[in-house]
Every structure is written in C-alpha cells, then in structure tokens.
Design a protein around this nucleic acid. Sequence first.
DNA 1: GCCGTTTTCGGCCCGACTGTTTTCAGTCG
Length: 581
Amino acid sequence: MDRSGIADILDEMGTLLELKGANPFKSRAFHNASRTVSSVPEDVIALAKSERLTTIKGIGEGIAKVITELVEHGRSKEHEELKKGIPPGLFDMMKIQGLGPKKVAFLFRQKKITSIEKLEKAAKAGELAGLEGFGRKTEQNILLGIEQLRKHSSRFHISTAEKAALEILDAVKSHPGIMRCELAGSLRRRKETIGDIDIVASARKNAVPAIMKMFTGHPSVTRVTGEGETKSSVVLSSGINCDLRIVTDAEFPFAMNYFTGSKEHNVRIRSLAREKGWSLNEYGFSAVEEEGKRGTSKRAVKCRDEADIYKAVGLPYIAPELREDAGEIERAKEGRLPELVEEGDIRGTFHCHTTYSDGRNTLKEMAEAAIALGWEYLGIADHSQVATYANGLTEERVRRQHEEIDALNATFNKFRLFKGSEVDILPDGSMDFRDAVLSRFDFVVASVHSQFKMTEAEMTKRILKAVKNKHVTMLGHLTGRLLLEREGYPVNQSEIIQAAADYGKVIEINAHPMRLDLDWRWVRIAVEKKVMISINPDSHTATGLSDVRYGVGIARKGWCAKKDVLNTRNAKDVSKLLKNE
DNA sequence: GCCGTTTTCGGCCCGACTGTTTTCAGTCG
C-alpha cells in the first residue's frame, strides 16, 4: 500500500473511533498521524520496512504497527476490527453540516439509519424530532444540509473562492465603521481548494450591528445560517459558506491568527503559549491562573500584529502559507524558515499556449501581455503533433513558429520569447518529436495527455522514461492528482521526484487554477531534494498569465525560496539552466 | 494513541453558536 492509502486508512480509523465514542484524544492521534504520513518528506514505506517509523513525531508503537501491517499486507487487523458494525454510509452522513460523530452514531443506534437516503426519508417523515437531542429545527437543518451537500461539492477551487470572497470583502471593507478587515482561513493560507471563506474585521463597537446587517444582506448571500454579535455565517450564491467575525482592534491580530489556522498550527502555538504560562485564544493572551498563586501571574501581552504574537511565544513570524503544522514550527524554533518566493520575484513563465495550437491569443499578444506584467521573458509551449484534438504542431509548423519567434525577438528591447513545446509522452514513454526536432527547442515540457487508465506502475514507468530523455527539460502537470472533479492518473510521485533530482530536470507547478495538480507536500519534497521548480500558468489566453500567482501560493506552501524557482532567474541564467549546464 | 529540559502518568487548545434544554452537549473552526 502506498503513502496516500495509508493516510486514508489512518484517517478512517480516527473517524471510526469518533463514531464509537472512544477517547477523543485517541481518535485525534489517528487523524494527526494521517496528516503526518502524507506530509513528511521521509519515505514512509522505507521507514516501515526498516522498523524506524517511531522516529517520526506523532507515530508511536501502536500506529507504527498499523502502518507496518498496511505496508506488508495491504490491510490492518485493528482497522478491520474497528470497521466491524459500522456501515460505510455513516461517513457520508458526517459530511452533512451540523452532523458530527455523536449524532450520526446515535441515529444509527436508535433508528438504524445507515445512509443519507435513509436519513432524508426519516427527516421528511418527521421521525427525528422528538428523539433525544433532536427537535424540529435540527430536522429541518439536516434536510437543508443534505440539499446543500448534493448541490455543491464541499470544496472549491481557490480561484472560485477568491472571486466570491473579494466581492463581499470589498463591500464589508467599505463600511465607515470598519478599522481593519482581511481574508483569513485556507484562502489566506493559499490552499488549492477552499472549504469556506473567513473574513475577520475590527470595528467600532456601535457600528457592529450595521456591519453584520450589511454582510447578511449582501446581494451574493442566498441564506443566512447564523447571526450573532461577533460572528455571522452565510451561504453565497456560489454555494460557498462565508463567515464574518468582528472583534475590537486590539483583538484583531489574535483573531486573524486564530481564524487563519490551520487548526493544527493553532494547537501548536497555543501549546507554546501554555509553556510560557499564557492561555491564547482569538482575543488575546491571558495569564493561566495557577492554584494558590492568584494575582501573581504575569500580565497579558499586547500585540499590534501577528508578528508580535509569534514573538511572544518565542518564534519568528511564520507566513500564512506555512501554517499547516508540517514542520514549520520546528524550523521556526531553529531559525531555519525559508525566505519564501514572492509574486514580485517572478520574471517570466513557461508552458504558454498560442493560436498555433489551442491558445486564444497570438504569439505577439502573449508577448505583449507578459511585457505588461513587467516580465523579462515568456516561454511558449504549444502542443506536439499527436495532440490533434488541440491542433498540435507538426515539424513543419514548429519551423514556422520558430521563424516568427526569431522575428519578434528581433523587435524586443529587453524581452525575449523562449522556444518551447509541450511534448506528449507517448504510452510507451517515448517523446512525440524526433530528437532532431526536440533539440531545436530552448526547452521541452514533457506531459501525459492520453491513456490515463494505466496502473500506477505503468504510468510511473512511462514518465520515468521521459525523465531520462536528455532533450526533456521540464515535467508538465505531472502528478495527475485528482483535484475536485478533474480526472487524474496514478503515479508514484516519490520515484518521479527522485528521478528529476538525479537527472537535473525541472518540475512544473501548474498554476492554472483548474489544474493545480502538484500538491504542496510534493513541492516541499522536491525542494528538499534540490529539484528546480517552474511556476507555469499553462495559459491559453493572455489574461491567464496572471494565474501564476496561484502557483506562487503553492510554491510558498511548499517552502520554495526564490532560488528554488526557475522563473525568478534572469533570461541568461534560464537559458543556461535549460541547456542542462 | 502520543508525549516528556518538572513527567513513564496525566495531560492533550479553546470559544461561539445552535438547539436543545433549564444547565448543557454537540458541532464547528
């Protein structure tokens, strides 16, 4: 069993423990271990085989045993024991807003409800109201929750969420009573997909009711699910939940920190605060009352911004993108946080399509858009010949495109177009152009566009062959990770990243918002193995070039420093690097 | 189940909101 399979089982075991009403800290240990397994840079499989799993923080004797069993036999006895008597439908039921493990387990025990369908039937028949802890209101909310679950997938692409968020954020910000107001949550942490939108604001006390009214009455709001003095929740027309929290200005940095999360990061920061004798919540630090020591405890710390909070717990500022409790706190303690790449460091990008294949804009228009962004170069990479569906270029058309690029380059002052191609990796792992043609490009992006239904081993072998091809400089949207509804294909990312390191290849972060398919965890592993990263928008339009920022978000999550990113180099250095030095 | 510069036992982050209750449990983030 591979890493993600192990992570899934551990997570499921955590949920099973919740459903069975086990010690909540025990179930949390499994959920934590699941996250750890999918995010540590070490090779979990190898550690299991050499009995060194417990060297990983958060994996002890018990969970190590489960992982080892999964690696060796593909199944775990303890997992199977836990699953006994728990219908799989209960997991679906827990996805309904307002239904957690306790209520789901209760409904199962009392009413033998084992699926969303049965739950819906019971709720519609009015059989739930009157049960212990259930009333009319809960029954209605369950039906609404089911409806919402069916209508919308529970997560949204960052680009969709950002658009919806900025619209309502601007409206709230415009209220004269607002002092500070920002996006928090996973949107601020720049995750590829967003569960809901969090807005944190500070405001004058007497303006709060009016601001809440303005928020819940915004045209993009379709349903108000909660309205309180400090917090209101709504559902937007796009189906995304959006929360607004209003605090005082002194509390603002604490609220920002708290609601930016991640939850796991917060837990760690709060522990650090505790070690220093403070309790930390979304409003500030307060002294922990020690028994018999009343009044002697230290004074609360005032913080103007988040950096002050980190300073108070003995850490340097940690950028939101890093706050996943994936090693950032240890690094911060050691003063070894990376100096993250910034959007402003980007000097150009690669893997862009034009009207030569399936792009919407001409070479010249793409170049002009890049110049308008202040970039120094742009890498053109239209499709290769086998991609007939995308109007892939024949050898003859490649020649013509190169002539046009040469002519355009002659007209530029301080800008350059690089000649590239997104060449298909054919099912047998060979490339879609002859070596003689490949050698004419400044760079070659190798991508899979066909025969997705291969096994993981077959697909990995196919891509590894391309990695070893000396004309290939860059691997295009390569992990085939399933992101929301998009089709994916299975590959062994570890092996491919290792091969990229061995053969000096560049790995692409596909910045196209619908194709953010390189998980930040893998970016981080690539960075640790010193693989060069390229942030490419896979743009088919001139306006799409600015999508690079989504890739920058993922790069930052993956701990990319400026030096790890190809696009931060000047044109001359890029040329050298792509020529394989 | 995991962890330990006080610890191998006894902690493990914390508050708002909701809907159900009549003082609180469950859920969420």
